[in-house]
Each structure stands twice: as structure tokens, then as C-alpha cells.
Nucleic acid binder design. Structure first.
Lengths: 217, 217
DNA sequence: ATTCATAATGAAACACTGTTTCATAATCGT
DNA sequence: ACGATTATGAAACAGTGTTTCATTATGAAT
């Protein structure tokens, strides 16, 4: 494409099987395209992410994007994975606490904050923006990785005998579904007022803690 | 369309405002169009509902649909309201029970069944299919009407002193968010296996009952 | 009944979308 | 240096929601 620095021919006169300079360049290009798509998405929402718009921003024909990602779904998948990384970082930024109740409360708050600060990513990941795309193995695993803190905390609670359930995933999903339900009803406009939604969310977190971690409160 | 219709000239002088035969015809036409859209939706999913496809089924030009509904969003809104009616009927079909715990359990099951039997409607109402459209006053009220049984049951429980919360809407939203969260994660492919999802759902219902109706169990 | 302004009609066009084609250009192995 | 691939990218294709506009039909007034 246009401003493509000519391959500094890694040249490797004879080496045959390694990611060629060309390929590395393609990888870089892919990252740039994802970044362009992400910036459009965060500024104008997921529905504004069209192949043409991304191509225009990259000053390249749309065909390039199809060559690199196969389809719009391929690009959506990368945005999905990007969102998983961001969510994971969000959870990692929450300081661990010995008190599982408080830790869980903070993680819940972080999940809410993520849905507010990265609404477009949230909609792509869990809200069905880009209806093209349904999660498969790789993306589901990325979510699991992102939810790792939740899984860890629940696993600990089970080990400590605080929870009668034996399957941590099951418990995490129960929590996740409740938090997601509130957020999604809010984002969908069914609970319009944000403060009402947040109140609902906080009550849910409290109830969940009360249900699963029957320590104090 | 073939048989045209005319608005009752609003110039008032003689013709006072009452539904004319022509207007009734238009109303009938609207109902037919909604029915056509609904049948396409239930057979091929919400994304298959295009103005052209509906017009083709009605053997009329697309302009007619725009004249009657203004936009696709207008048609989507009618499908939304249709879904609210169906959900309302679903809840009404659940026999009342003196035992609020059992009644609530059955209503929860009915909500799950609705999401399975009318998945397309569910996606239009709560899943963000037809991203065009966001609920407003009228549609939000339709949902409230549909959730009337839930509101009634919680109001009763509050009166009986079973729930410390004072706002029934708040409690209903808490329940709704949890049920919706599980269903939506399932429909979104994040909890793929249906039996796993249902198990999650049933556990949630039990937990909700345990949280709010701390009678038996 | 015959005008005549007004409103409904509906085929075609517009502005988008995701995606594919295909002649051209560049690249690569020999 | 050459011949066989492969990458390119403007243009086209098929679809979408929506609007235009010449034609037609209508309803009220003469």
C-alpha cells in the first residue's frame, strides 16, 4: 500500500521457513487496521465501523482488509479479542484483597466501569453489536482469561468452604449473568436512568455476595 | 397499494374526526404488514426482516410501508409491541398460586420458555436486534404491562412483609436483570450448551427466591 | 358533471453496506 | 532475465434503508 516502508529485506539469503519480512509487515498492517477500526468504534460507536471507513482511514482499498481479515467478521473478532485484553487489564488493575467479599465487590465495580468506559467494546463482546459474529473457541477462551480474577476468587472461596457449589465456573457464570443482565438492560434502554441502573447493579452485587459468600453483611 | 386509501380531510369543517372506512382499511393494511414481517422474522430471524422482503410478501412497493410506518424503526416498534403482547399472554397462561415461591418459579419458567419459543421476538425486545430502535415511553410501558404478573407478585410479597425492600419495581428489575442476563449470555453464544444455560437459569431462580422470599427452601 | 388542486402511487434512483471480480502490476523462484 | 505466481485496487455486484418525482387517482367546489 501507500506508505509502506520497503521491506528492509531481512534478506536472509537462503533461510526458507520463518515469518518473512513481508509477513511481519502484514502483521504490522493488521495491527494498524485494528487500531484504526478501534478508534472509529470508540469515537462513533460499533455501527460506524464499516470496511470502507476503515479503509479510508488507512488510505488503502477495501480489498486489503479482506485479504488480511477475510471478512468483516474477521475484523470484528480482532476487536473482540482487543476488548478481552482491555477487560483483563481492567481486572488486573483491581488490587487483590484478603477479604473476598471486598475483593468481589471491587471486581464488580471494575466490570461496571469497563462497561461505561468501553461501552463500544462491551457491546461488541457481549451486546451483539456486529451481529455477524458469534464467539467460538478462541474468543470464548479469551473471555475466560479476562474473567480469571473472578474464577480465582470463587475457586478460593470454594476451597475455604464458603461456597457449597463445587464448580467455580458455574458460580462465576451465575455472577456474570446477573451483572451482565443489569448492564445490558441499561445499555438497551430498558433501565434508562444511569443512577437507577447503578443502584440496581450495586444491590445485585450485594445480593450475590450474600448468596455466595455468607460471611458478614 | 392496489386499493388506495385516503385520510379523512382534517380541514374539519364537515368531516369530524372519526375513523373512516378508508382509515380502517389502512389500519387493516398495517396489521397485515406487521403479520407479514412477523412471519418472516419467526421463520428466518430478525435480520431477514427487510422492507423489500416484507413488501414482496405483501405484493406492494416499499413506499407503502414507509407511508404507513415512517421507517423501518416504525415497523420494528410494532413488532416490539407484538412481542410484548405475546409475553403478556405467556405470563397470563401461568396459573396463579397462593404460594408465591411456586408462582414465581413458574413465572420464571414461563419467561425462559418465551425466550425459547419466540427467540426472534425476544431478540427484538431485549436483545438489540434491529439496532435502529431504542425503547421509548410507549414501548417501555408495554414491557411493564407484560411484566405485570411479576410486579403483582412482588407487591404482594412486600405487603405480606416477605421482602424488606419497599419498591416493587426495583425488586422486579433485579429479578428481570438476572433472568435476562442468563438468557442473553446463552443467546449470544457465551454459554453455548442449552442444558448448562438452563441449569444456570434454574439456579438463579432458586437464588432469587432465596434472596427475596426467605420462606422455605 | 366538470373542473382543479391535492394527495397517493410505485418504479426508479440515491446513498450506503459487505464482498468479489479482473485486468494490471509487482514479486518471486529458477 | 525470464516466466509463473501472487498482490493490487478500481470498479462492479448484490443487498440494504430511504427518497424522489412523474403519473395517476381522488375529493371538494363549481
Amino acid at each position: 500500500m501507500h506508505n509502506s516502508s520497503e521491506m528492509p529485506s531481512i534478506d536472509g539469503r537462503k533461510v526458507t521457513t520463518y515469518p518473512s519480512a513481508k509477513l511481519q509487515h502484514t502483521e504490522m498492517l493488521k495491527l494498524n487496521i485494528i487500531e484504526a477500526a478501534a478508534s472509529i468504534m470508540q469515537e462513533h460507536g460499533p455501527e460506524a465501523v464499516t470496511i470502507r471507513r476503515v479503509a479510508e482511514k488507512m488510505e488503502c482499498p477495501t480489498k486489503i482488509i479482506y485479504n488480511l481479515f477475510g471478512s468483516k467478521e474477521g475484523l470484528a473478532k480482532r476487536l473482540f479479542l482487543e476488548g478481552c485484553k482491555l477487560l483483563s487489564l481492567t481486572f488486573q488493575a483491581v488490587p487483590e484483597q484478603a477479604d473476598l467479599t471486598l475483593y468481589l465487590r471491587d471486581l464488580g465495580q471494575a466490570y461496571w466501569d469497563f462497561s461505561r468506559n468501553y461501552t463500544s467494546y462491551y457491546m461488541v463482546m457481549f451486546g451483539g453489536a456486529f451481529s455477524e459474529f458469534k464467539p467460538e473457541e478462541e474468543t470464548l477462551q479469551a473471555i475466560n482469561t479476562a474473567l480469571q480474577q473472578f474464577i480465582t476468587i470463587i475457586t478460593q472461596a470454594i476451597k475455604q468452604g464458603l461456597i457449597s457449589e463445587t464448580d467455580p465456573i458455574h458460580v462465576v457464570n451465575l455472577i456474570w449473568a446477573t451483572l451482565h443482565g443489569t448492564i445490558h438492560l441499561h445499555l438497551g434502554g430498558h433501565i434508562q436512568d444511569e443512577r437507577t441502573a447503578k443502584l440496581l447493579y450495586d444491590t445485585s452485587v450485594t445480593n450475590l455476595i450474600h448468596t455466595f459468600l455468607r460471611s458478614d453483611n
